[in-house]
Simulated assay, not measured.
Amino acid sequence: MGKKTRAKTAVPAGENPRRPCPCGSGKRYKACHGAGDDVIVTRPFEGLAAECDLVAMREFLPSATAPLPLREPGDVPVTLATVLPGAAAAVVRPDGSILLGMQVQTRSGDLSADLARALRWARGATPGTALPVVGPGIAGELVRVQDVLDPAAELDVTVHPDFGWWIPPSEDGSEPGPDVTASLERANEVIMPTEPVSAPGVRAAYWVDTGTKAHLRWVRPEPEEALVAALARLQARGELALADDARYAGSFRAHGLLVPVWDLDRELHAKEWSESVAAFATRLEAALAEDAPLTDAERRARDALAGKQVTLR
Results as ranks from 00 to 15, higher is better:
136 P>N: 14
229 A>T: 14
56 A>E: 06
129 T>S: 12
64 A>V: 01
14 G>K: 07
204 A>V: 06
252 F>H: 14
137 G>C: 07
129 T>W: 03
239 E>R: 14
191 I>L: 09
18 R>G: 15
97 S>F: 07
200 P>I: 06
252 F>K: 10
303 D>A: 14
3 K>H: 13
178 P>C: 02
84 L>Y: 02
214 A>E: 04
140 G>M: 04
198 S>R: 12
131 L>Y: 00
152 A>Q: 13
192 M>V: 11
253 R>F: 04
223 P>R: 06
166 W>S: 02
307 G>I: 06
9 T>V: 13
35 A>R: 15
231 L>K: 04
26 G>Y: 05
114 D>Q: 02
12 P>F: 05
73 P>S: 06
171 E>R: 13
244 D>E: 15
196 P>H: 07
91 V>A: 09
101 G>W: 01
162 D>A: 05
168 P>L: 08
100 L>S: 00
149 L>S: 02
135 G>K: 10
147 D>L: 04
308 K>A: 12
261 V>W: 11
13 A>T: 14
242 L>V: 12
35 A>N: 11
212 T>V: 11
64 A>C: 08
51 E>S: 10
273 W>E: 09
251 S>D: 10
22 P>I: 05
113 A>S: 13
133 V>Y: 08
279 A>M: 12
237 R>D: 13
306 A>R: 13
266 R>G: 03
155 L>Y: 00
104 V>S: 06
308 K>P: 08
25 S>Q: 02
246 A>E: 09
146 Q>I: 09
80 L>A: 00
62 P>Y: 01
280 F>G: 14
86 G>W: 04
45 F>Y: 14
96 G>R: 04
28 R>V: 08
155 L>I: 02
207 W>Y: 12
248 Y>H: 14
237 R>K: 15
221 P>K: 07
86 G>V: 04
274 S>V: 10
195 E>P: 10
89 A>S: 10
44 P>D: 08
171 E>M: 09
245 D>I: 00
118 A>V: 06
254 A>E: 06
291 D>P: 11
191 I>W: 03
187 A>W: 07
240 L>I: 14
45 F>G: 10
125 A>Y: 07
68 L>C: 00
20 P>D: 00
155 L>W: 01
162 D>E: 07
214 A>G: 09
312 L>V: 15
14 G>F: 05
178 P>K: 07
161 P>Y: 02
293 P>L: 06
222 E>V: 03
